[in-house]
Lab assay of single mutants.
Amino acid sequence: SKDAAQYVYDEAQKGVTQVTVNGVTFKFDNWQKLLKYAQKLLN
């Protein structure tokens, strides 16, 4: 959902490398990768 994507995006902006959405945890090597993933979700 857009809300989940926005949440992931906001978390990535904080510099975190993992985020949990609806009980599913996504882990990334660095926050830039998390940010890229979030941007994909938002598009």
Score class of each variant (00 low, 15 high):
residue 39 Q to N: 03
residue 34 L to M: 01
residue 41 L to D: 00
residue 16 V to Y: 07
residue 16 V to T: 04
residue 5 A to K: 03
residue 3 D to T: 02
residue 17 T to R: 01
residue 23 G to Y: 12
residue 2 K to A: 09
residue 9 Y to P: 11
residue 11 E to I: 12
residue 18 Q to R: 02
residue 10 D to I: 15
residue 4 A to Y: 09
residue 36 K to P: 01
residue 7 Y to C: 15
residue 32 Q to E: 06
residue 40 K to I: 08
residue 31 W to R: 00
residue 22 N to L: 10
residue 39 Q to K: 03
residue 29 D to N: 08
residue 39 Q to I: 05
residue 34 L to H: 00
residue 36 K to A: 12
residue 5 A to R: 01
residue 34 L to Y: 02
residue 43 N to A: 04
residue 28 F to H: 02
residue 6 Q to I: 07
residue 33 K to G: 04
residue 36 K to M: 05
residue 2 K to H: 08
residue 20 T to I: 10
residue 12 A to K: 03
residue 38 A to S: 01
residue 11 E to W: 14
residue 10 D to A: 08
residue 11 E to D: 10
residue 9 Y to I: 10
residue 29 D to W: 13
residue 29 D to P: 12
residue 32 Q to G: 06
residue 38 A to C: 14
residue 1 S to D: 08
residue 6 Q to F: 04
residue 17 T to E: 07
residue 14 K to N: 11
residue 10 D to L: 13
residue 30 N to G: 10
residue 7 Y to I: 13
residue 14 K to S: 08
residue 25 T to E: 03
residue 22 N to I: 15
residue 15 G to A: 06
residue 15 G to M: 12
residue 20 T to C: 15
residue 16 V to Q: 07
residue 14 K to V: 13
residue 22 N to T: 09
residue 21 V to W: 03
residue 7 Y to N: 10
residue 13 Q to G: 10
residue 12 A to H: 06
residue 43 N to Q: 09
residue 8 V to W: 14
residue 13 Q to K: 05
residue 8 V to D: 11
residue 25 T to G: 05
residue 30 N to T: 12
residue 18 Q to K: 07
residue 33 K to A: 12
residue 7 Y to V: 10
residue 26 F to T: 07
residue 43 N to D: 03
residue 38 A to N: 00
residue 14 K to F: 11
residue 29 D to C: 15
residue 16 V to E: 05
residue 4 A to W: 14
residue 42 L to T: 01
residue 7 Y to E: 15
residue 38 A to W: 08
residue 30 N to Y: 09
residue 7 Y to R: 05
residue 20 T to N: 04
residue 1 S to R: 02
residue 8 V to H: 04
residue 32 Q to R: 04
residue 23 G to N: 02
residue 11 E to K: 10
residue 33 K to M: 07
residue 32 Q to P: 03
residue 8 V to I: 08
residue 17 T to V: 13
residue 35 L to Y: 02
residue 12 A to N: 08
residue 42 L to H: 01
residue 36 K to E: 15
residue 15 G to T: 13
residue 18 Q to W: 11
residue 37 Y to P: 00
residue 34 L to T: 00
residue 27 K to P: 09
residue 32 Q to S: 03
residue 30 N to A: 11
residue 2 K to L: 11
residue 27 K to R: 12
residue 1 S to V: 12
residue 9 Y to C: 14
residue 12 A to G: 06
residue 29 D to F: 14
residue 19 V to S: 02
residue 7 Y to F: 11
residue 40 K to F: 03
residue 31 W to I: 05
residue 27 K to T: 05
residue 16 V to I: 06
residue 6 Q to M: 03
residue 26 F to R: 05
residue 43 N to I: 06
residue 29 D to R: 10
residue 21 V to R: 01
residue 26 F to Y: 09
residue 21 V to C: 14
residue 3 D to M: 03
residue 19 V to D: 02
residue 39 Q to F: 11
residue 16 V to F: 10
residue 11 E to C: 15
residue 3 D to W: 08
residue 35 L to D: 00
residue 22 N to P: 07
residue 33 K to D: 14
residue 6 Q to H: 09
residue 10 D to W: 14
residue 23 G to M: 12
residue 9 Y to E: 10
residue 8 V to G: 10
residue 25 T to Y: 10
residue 40 K to R: 03
residue 35 L to E: 01
residue 3 D to N: 04
residue 7 Y to G: 14
residue 26 F to G: 01
residue 24 V to P: 04
residue 17 T to H: 07
residue 2 K to D: 14
residue 10 D to T: 11
residue 26 F to S: 02
residue 3 D to C: 15
residue 13 Q to C: 15
residue 39 Q to T: 06
residue 15 G to R: 04
residue 36 K to H: 09
residue 28 F to Y: 04
residue 9 Y to V: 06
residue 24 V to T: 04
residue 18 Q to I: 12
residue 11 E to T: 14
residue 18 Q to G: 08
residue 18 Q to P: 09
residue 42 L to N: 01
residue 29 D to T: 07
residue 1 S to L: 13
residue 23 G to F: 14
residue 40 K to H: 07
residue 42 L to E: 01
residue 25 T to F: 14
residue 8 V to C: 15
residue 13 Q to P: 06
residue 13 Q to N: 11
residue 24 V to G: 03
residue 18 Q to M: 08
residue 15 G to P: 05
residue 33 K to C: 10
residue 6 Q to G: 07
residue 31 W to M: 05
residue 20 T to A: 06
residue 2 K to G: 14
residue 42 L to P: 00
residue 40 K to A: 09
residue 27 K to D: 11
residue 24 V to M: 06
residue 9 Y to F: 11
residue 10 D to Q: 05
residue 43 N to T: 02
residue 9 Y to S: 11
residue 36 K to Y: 08
residue 38 A to H: 01
residue 35 L to C: 12
residue 41 L to R: 01
residue 42 L to V: 02
residue 16 V to C: 12
residue 40 K to L: 06
residue 10 D to M: 14
residue 15 G to C: 15
residue 30 N to E: 07
residue 4 A to E: 08
residue 25 T to D: 07
residue 10 D to S: 06
residue 33 K to L: 09
residue 35 L to W: 03
residue 40 K to M: 13
residue 15 G to S: 10
residue 24 V to A: 04
residue 36 K to D: 12
residue 16 V to A: 06
residue 5 A to H: 03
residue 28 F to I: 09
residue 13 Q to S: 08
residue 24 V to K: 03
residue 39 Q to S: 03
residue 8 V to M: 09
residue 10 D to V: 13
residue 43 N to K: 13
residue 10 D to E: 12
residue 24 V to L: 12
residue 43 N to L: 10
residue 7 Y to S: 14
residue 41 L to P: 00
residue 24 V to Y: 09
residue 16 V to G: 06
residue 35 L to T: 01
residue 22 N to Q: 09
residue 28 F to M: 06
residue 28 F to P: 02
residue 35 L to A: 00
residue 39 Q to A: 04
residue 14 K to M: 09
residue 43 N to V: 01
residue 43 N to F: 10
residue 40 K to E: 09
residue 42 L to K: 01
residue 6 Q to W: 13
residue 11 E to A: 03
residue 41 L to Q: 01
residue 10 D to H: 06
residue 15 G to W: 15
residue 33 K to I: 08
residue 1 S to A: 05
residue 5 A to V: 05
residue 14 K to T: 10
residue 4 A to C: 14
residue 21 V to L: 05
residue 32 Q to L: 09
residue 19 V to Y: 02
residue 20 T to Q: 05
residue 22 N to Y: 15
residue 29 D to H: 11
residue 32 Q to Y: 11
residue 15 G to E: 07
residue 19 V to F: 07
residue 1 S to H: 14
residue 11 E to Y: 09
residue 40 K to Q: 05
residue 12 A to P: 08
residue 40 K to W: 10
residue 26 F to P: 03
residue 24 V to H: 03
residue 21 V to T: 10
residue 4 A to N: 07
residue 36 K to T: 05
residue 3 D to V: 01
residue 19 V to H: 04
residue 36 K to S: 06
residue 33 K to R: 05
residue 35 L to V: 02
